[in-house]
Nucleic acid binder design. Structure first.
Length: 255
DNA sequence: GCTAGAGCAGAGGT
DNA sequence: AACCTCTGCTCTAG
């Protein structure tokens, strides 16, 4: 039996034409203004296990999420060429997804051994970032964007490199587009000696959802976005982070 | 309901 | 942190 914490709460609208209008942005801005006056916290779902501490919520309703998805599809410039490749066991592969990075001016980060400069925030990304800040109380100076074209695109099990991240600031993962399964596995439940029978924690990341990964989740738990061949539509994932300047080194991978 | 085959998902090796 | 292979599970057409 699956133990998914959440199931499709809302049907994805990516397969419809509903978002092809300017109305959602107007409505979103109006709602932001209303929220200023009648601000009430969004409902969070706590996800906990040994050494794992996450919070999950629906940050955007379907209309807002559709709008942001569409905007990002038009705006985001993903890496191509060598920057979209990766060496594993001596072989070069194209990474099974698309990636892009945006952030505060001058922020450097390392990826697959190459130092790159974060692109400047777009207005859409600033909107989303500010919504996340408003919902969480945390500020972010960097976002890594992963685009999964369909259920064949995926990311393998990994932990985020915390050495250049501010551990007091959670990683905030916003999902837009197709809902995808997301799996946490405790490091001690993986292969090798000293293996312990710790159940994986599985969730489904819905269109418009926000997953906060709090300390010390990334110390003990690996996470992945597994292949799901039945998924035919794209998903865009934004992981907002706080990078500590002068502490930057290698190996950001994300979800 | 039952069965056989296809396809999917997960684990381990490289 | 990628793919490949192997194994076991689930789904479905007949």
């Amino acid at each position: 039996m699956d133990k998914f914490v959440t199931r499709h709460r809302k049907r994805s609208a990516v397969e419809t034409d509903e978002w092809k209008t300017e109305e959602p942005l107007k409505k979103y801005k109006e709602e932001c203004e209303v929220e200023e006056e009648f601000s009430q916290p969004i409902p969070w779902q706590k996800i906990e296990a040994e050494g794992l501490d996450c919070d999950y919520s629906l940050l955007f309703d379907k209309e807002e999420a559709d709008y942001f998805f569409n905007q990002l599809e038009e705006e985001v410039e993903y890496f191509t060429g060598d920057k979209a490749k990766l060496q594993v066991y001596g072989k070069t592969y194209s990474i099974p997804r698309k990636q892009a990075t945006y952030g505060d001016e001058g922020l450097m980060y390392s990826f697959s051994g190459v130092q790159l400069l974060a692109k400047p925030w777009t207005s859409t990304l600033e909107h989303i970032r500010d919504a996340v800040t408003k919902a969480t109380g945390h500020m972010f100076n960097f976002v890594l964007i992963n685009r999964y074209n369909d259920g064949h695109d995926h990311i393998g099990e990994h932990r985020d490199d915390e050495r250049e991240l501010d551990p007091a600031c959670p990683i905030a993962s916003v999902s837009l587009g197709a809902a995808r399964d997301f799996v946490f596995r405790h490091r001690d439940a993986r292969t090798g000696s000293g293996k312990r029978p710790i159940e994986p924690v599985k969730l489904e990341l819905a269109h418009g959802s926000l997953l906060l990964m709090n300390y010390p989740t990334n110390t003990y738990w690996y996470h992945s976005l597994p292949v799901r061949k039945k998924v035919k539509m794209p998903r865009i994932n934004l992981t907002f982070r706080r990078i500590v300047k002068n502490k930057q080194k290698t190996g950001i991978k994300t979800e």
